[in-house]
């Protein structure tokens, strides 16, 4: 079986990053924005794992495991804040959060 070339992984990862960034920039619902951030993190993870193929110590794979755990922690914090926002504003739409001056 021939191995898949490294470039293919990089292209998929770059696509995931761009898709995630686009979601963060265009979506108004806070949950969707969090999904976008998650996609961007996974793009980086894919890159790390793909690159660690050339690394006998597999540093990249270890890094990816750490970042998966951190992403989960970040989402936990975000959902805790969002729960409070939903109670106060009755909405999870980021456009409704406009009580602070600019």
């Amino acid at each position: 079986m021939t191995a898949i070339p490294l470039t293919y992984y990089l292209v998929v990862a770059a696509f995931l990053l761009c898709a995630g960034l686009l979601i963060v920039l265009t979506k108004k619902n806070a949950i969707m924005v969090l999904i976008g951030i998650e996609l961007m993190l996974n793009a980086a993870n894919l890159n790390l794992v793909a690159f660690s193929r050339n690394d006998p110590q597999l540093n990249g794979q270890v890094f990816a495991i750490f970042s998966v755990v951190l992403a989960a922690a970040e989402v936990a914090i975000a959902l805790a804040i969002l729960l409070n926002i939903y109670r106060k504003y009755n909405s999870s739409d980021l456009d409704d959060l406009n009580t602070l001056e600019h």
């Binding site: 990053l17 951030i37 961007m40 993190l41 793009a43 890159n47 970042s67 970040e74 975000a78 980021l94």
Partner: peptide, 19 residues
Amino acid sequence: IKYLIFGGTASALALYGAS
């Protein structure tokens, strides 16, 4: 939530840069 979304995006981009 504004701080978190902005920081999360910045750190996701940074992780991609680190990779």
